[in-house]
Amino acid sequence: MTDKSLAHANLPFSLHRDPFGRLVLVDHDGHAHEGVTVIRAFPISDPHRMVSIVDTAGHELALVEDLENVDADTRLTVLQELARREFLPHIQRILGVSGRIEPCEWRVATDRGEHRFVISAYEDVHRFGQHGALVIDGEGTRYLIPDVRQLDRASRRHLERYL
């Protein structure tokens, strides 16, 4: 499977969206694959390189090594699809924490609006990279704080205990 996908990687293909909202990949043979998914291989450490396009069964159809190297239309479609798929709210402020002991409820302002969620354990707040933090709520949804130093004092105080 690996060999095959690597062989696919550099072949030309085109991407478009059909009326059903599905992403369709037409490969170099003119064969259309409906409902393909776009996945970043390194979503955090290197988001703009190694973007894989897989079919409904999860087999790789194409691997875009660098989004800079594909035509503008494909790049736009890929980026739109990624925006549609990826759900990683960035926490901008921590408005309140219900207690110092887990499980506790956090009230946060994110780039996707205000939200409340429950942290079920101390270990669900991690240091992430040099200055960031990753928070995982009781339902498994992840929230990113790209740079803890950018938060206001009150938010930082809530986080302090975890980092």
Binding site: P19, F20, G21, T37, R85, E86, G140, T141
Partner: peptide, 25 residues
């Protein structure tokens, strides 16, 4: 259900009529 957010879609015969998004919760 994708990583992070799922979709509920109402499909008509020719096109998608509507969709809703939700978290994995």
């Amino acid at each position: 259900d994708q990583t992070g957010a799922g979709t509920l879609e109402l499909m008509g015969p020719e096109r998608r009529l509507a969709f809703w998004r939700f978290t994995s919760a």
